[in-house]
Computed example of a mutant assay.
Amino acid sequence: MRYVFRQQTEHLRSLLRSFPAVLLVGPRQCGKSTLARRLLPGWTHLDLERPADLAVMAADLEGFFDAHPRSVVIDEAQRLPEVFSVLRYVIDRKRGNGRFLLLGSASPTLMRSVSETLAGRVALVELTPFLASELAGTARASDRWFWGGFPPVHALREPGARGEWLNAYVSTFIERDLPALGLGLPARRLRILWTMLTHIHGNLLNVSDLARSLVVSSHTVAGDLDVLEGAYMIRRLPPYHANVQKRLTKSAKLYVRDTGLLHFLAGLRRPRDLATWPRRGASFEGMVIEELAGLTAHRLVRPELFFWRTQAGAEVDLLIVEGRRILPVEIKLGAAVNQYAVAGLRQCMKDLGLKRGWVISTASERRRLSPGIEIVPWSEIASGKVELF
């Protein structure tokens, strides 16, 4: 499989010029190690999942950094929490940017260590599985919706082999990765919950309903959701609250972030299964949201994502917020979009005083639906060439 250029490459390179250390996080197997080796081939690379590398560092951390004061990549850094306090000392002793790149899957230990120990010394970058725009122009582009974005999936050709990989990924995540992070959750309960989430994908999250179905407390389910979200498996999209004279929804919307995992856990095994799946529209919606989240991450400054919904039911799927700029986005699977389908978008624009909004659909060309509202083809988003603001 040929190397696929990652859109976060230049952002990561820029941060290395501005900070002593950069932390690159994301789900396991999303391509963090590959990107690091591609971008920094001359650096010293250590993987703390390798017993030999872990032993070298754990034996004498200060001595290791005395011998390697810069140009070091540490993969799975959360495996050795002590590294963060030592790095603080090393960075403060001799200032200089672009010295260390840390890679890690999110965990309470990792994020707490960074926020408490390396605040102001490290920049944070999230790497996702392949975006559609990263696969644009390749033979794998047409597989992105059904099979998701994990690179090892796209290295396989047969549907059976891809399904086996996804199954192994779920099992390994639950049975090995979480216990290794100190999160010993019951594997069976977590897998059932994860599967249940495929049926509410794109809907408002009701933790009490999930708790009743699992016969556990709401607090337990909330904790399990925190784990899945912290590991980049799910997204809880928060509602947007503004000072308008309307009652707005307070519950988040739930999405399984990778469509490959979404479809596999929902029991879909072949691309043709998607055509008759009742959640097909919600699947498309989630894919578009993840694509836009990826695009905003490296194009905008501190972007925030929300959805908008009133208690009366008027709704917009996504609000992209950068400071005082807001772009409302409605997502429709299908080429035909009429005025009635965007009533919620018009209401949102009126209430928030916005002059433009998008409807992303599978239409073949961009066109204006009404003053301020444009229909934007998904193909334009997937090409990565779209301008947000």
Rank of each mutant, 00 (worst) to 15 (best):
G160D: 15
L178C: 04
L156N: 01
A155L: 14
L178I: 06
L183V: 13
I200F: 04
W165M: 10
L181N: 06
T172H: 12
T172E: 07
L166Q: 09
P152W: 05
W165S: 03
I192D: 09
E164T: 10
A168W: 00
M196H: 10
L181Q: 15
R189Y: 13
D177R: 03
L178R: 08
P152T: 03
V153L: 09
Y169S: 02
L178T: 08
N203T: 04
L193R: 02
T195F: 06
A180G: 02
F173V: 04
P179Y: 13
L166P: 03
G202Q: 10
A161M: 13
T198G: 11
N167P: 00
A187Q: 08
L181R: 08
A161G: 08
R176V: 12
D177C: 10
L190C: 06
R189P: 01
G202R: 06
S171P: 00
T198S: 13
N167G: 13
R191W: 02
L185P: 00
H201L: 12
H154D: 04
I174L: 15
R157A: 05
E164R: 14
I192W: 02
I174Y: 06
R188Q: 12
R189W: 02
G160V: 01
Y169T: 01
T198V: 12
G182A: 06
N167T: 14
A180Q: 14
T172Y: 04
V153I: 15
A180R: 12
E158P: 02
Y169V: 02
W194D: 01
E175A: 15
L185F: 09
A187Y: 04
L156Y: 06
G163W: 02
H154Q: 11
H201Y: 09
D177K: 01
A168M: 06
L185T: 11
R176F: 05
R157H: 12
G184Q: 10
L197P: 08
F173C: 03
A187W: 02
A161P: 06
P159N: 06
R157S: 05
H154N: 05
H201C: 06
E164P: 00
H199R: 14
E164Q: 14
Y169R: 09
R162T: 01
I192Y: 03
I192T: 13
I192M: 12
Y169K: 03
N167W: 00
G182C: 02
P152C: 07
E175D: 13
H199G: 10
N167I: 03
I200Y: 08
N203A: 14
R157Y: 04
L178E: 15
G184N: 14
R157F: 00
L197Q: 08
L190Q: 11
P186N: 14
E175K: 14
L193Q: 05
L178N: 13
W165N: 01
W165G: 02
A168N: 15
G163M: 09
R157K: 12
A180I: 13
L166D: 02
L193I: 11
P152F: 10
G184H: 14
A161R: 12
L193P: 03
W194N: 01
I200L: 14
T198D: 09
L183K: 05
P159E: 14
